[in-house]
């Protein structure tokens, strides 16, 4: 068999599978959809938490406090030296007035007490943002040590305890995330591959009959591949739709909640289509081989 008759045959067989096996396909899609939902919920939570952590880590800065009344020249010298250091993303000058204003904002209603002050007690400072991958206590400590000895520098602080805590948190989070992710992934693969296998096992007799009337393996497998791909697409769309609905509901109470980007959703659906047809392919091949 070849050419147009072959393609017609494969499309016809695939269409008939979808038409006559509605309930079985529906059950498969529901099972796969919910398994995938568990997976995407997990991925989305991980994504959101890691974004929050990243943001938090970005805010961890090294403050270089200057002695009171340093000249502009000394300030500029310090800035140049700071910029010459490694692992630094940017260096910002925070004047004492600015610092006071920010402090006031933080205090909110109680900022009135600041008006009682006759002099601004806050120093001028440089705020140093580290490169994201270098926002660790080791690198920050190094900078602190270096800058401490410079002229005009009164103190260097970076919230040592917070940074160290944050690091532990991130490490723990990624370890747990990885372990949980593996468990979730394995269970999803297990559930889905069993669903596929059961669905195909119920058609073992038809596969054997097809073989007996002289169908080649390719022609027996092709409709299963198409069916698997369609199941993959539909169940991943179901999972994504449910997740999106849940997300827009939860999002009302958690404004910062992030959903996958469009490319991510498309990629996931395509991946599921591929995995769906691969799953079917492997399951059918098992009893085509003897």
């Amino acid at each position: 068999m070849s050419g147009i008759n072959g393609i017609k045959y494969i499309l016809g067989e695939s269409a008939r599978m979808l038409k006559y096996r509605k309930i079985s396909n529906l059950i498969s899609v529901i099972i796969m959809g919910f398994s995938l939902l568990v997976l995407v919920i997990f991925i989305l939570i991980t994504l959101n938490v890691s974004m929050v952590i990243e943001k938090g880590m970005e805010e961890m800065c090294v403050y270089v406090y200057l002695e009171d009344g340093t000249s502009n020249k000394i300030n500029e010298d310090i800035r140049t030296k700071l910029l010459g250091l490694e692992n630094i993303k940017k260096v910002l000058f925070v004047s004492k007035e600015e610092a006071l204003k920010k402090f006031g904002e933080r205090l909110g209603k109680s900022s009135e007490i600041l008006e009682e002050l006759s002099v601004n007690p806050l120093p001028n400072a440089f705020r140093i943002h580290m490169k994201p991958e270098c926002t660790t206590s080791v690198f920050m400590e190094k900078i602190a040590q270096t800058a401490m000895g410079w002229d005009g520098v009164e103190d260097v602080r970076y919230g040592k305890k917070w940074v160290e805590k944050g690091e532990k948190l991130v490490k723990g989070f990624y370890m747990i995330g990885l372990a949980l992710g593996l468990i979730v992934l394995l269970s999803v693969i297990f559930v889905i591959s069993n669903t596929v296998r059961l669905s195909i096992l119920s058609r073992r007799e038809s596969v054997e009959i097809m073989k007996l009337v002289g169908a080649t393996n390719g022609y027996i497998q092709a409709p299963f591949l198409i069916e698997g791909a369609i199941q993959g697409v539909v169940s991943s769309l179901v999972a994504m739709a449910l997740l999106w609905a849940a997300c827009s509901f939860v999002g009302r109470y958690m404004p910062g909640l992030v959903f996958f980007r469009f490319e991510g959703v498309v990629g996931f659906v395509v991946l599921c289509a591929f995995l769906g047809s691969m799953g079917s392919f492997i399951a059918v091949r098992k009893f085509l081989k003897r």
Binding site: S2, M210, V213, G214, Y219
Partner: peptide, 11 residues
């Protein structure tokens, strides 16, 4: 018809 389709016979 299946046996014939498989053998490449047109509809």
């Amino acid at each position: 018809a299946l046996a014939m389709k498989v053998a490449g016979t047109g509809l």
